[in-house]
């Protein structure tokens, strides 16, 4: 996978993450689940920022950044536990995408991917994930 292909894959993942965290945040109650709401909102902002950074990087490399899908399939989102589970799933998947980006890049791009991988791994714990031996690889 070329660096740009890996960036495009990460961007596609971030498009999905932004969409899903937007939906998850909308499903959470700020008054009844303030902690969960805050975590979802924070994740939404982080992924939106990463999406924008990837778009800029891909365009700077002379490629056309992939567009977001019109919509994405959603898991069951009836309870706070289901919101947590969905958020955790998103973070695990995006961590694997960043693992691929680390593998496919060098220099500043790799450093950026390492930070993103690190952040996603820690964010998994905030959504009731458990520590892994090798986050972003499985």
């Amino acid at each position: 996978m070329t660096p740009v292909e890996a960036q495009q894959a990460a961007l596609a993942g971030e498009h999905a993450a932004v969409y899903l965290f937007g939906v998850l945040g909308a499903q959470a109650s700020q008054s009844r689940q303030p902690a969960l709401y805050a975590r979802l909102l924070d994740a939404f902002h982080v992924h939106r920022r990463r999406r924008d950074q990837l778009s800029v990087a891909i365009a700077a490399a002379g490629a056309e950044p992939v567009a977001a899908e019109v919509s994405y399939d959603l898991p069951a989102l009836g309870t706070p536990a289901e919101l947590n589970d969905a958020a955790l799933q998103v973070e695990r998947r995006i961590a694997r995408t960043y693992g691929q980006l680390v593998e496919s890049t060098a220099g500043a791009e790799r450093r950026w991917a390492l930070v993103a991988l690190d952040d996603s791994a820690v964010r998994q714990l905030e959504f009731r994930g458990t520590p892994e031996m090798f986050p972003g690889t499985a």
């Binding site: 693992g99 680390v102 593998e103 890049t105 790799r110 690190d118 791994a121 090798f134």
Partner: peptide
């Protein structure tokens, strides 16, 4: 690249433990 990914995963795992 794969080795960089492995090391990055170890760093991320260390961050989780630090958390």
């Amino acid at each position: 690249g794969p080795f960089a990914r492995l090391l990055g995963a170890m760093a991320a795992a260390t961050s989780q433990q630090l958390h």
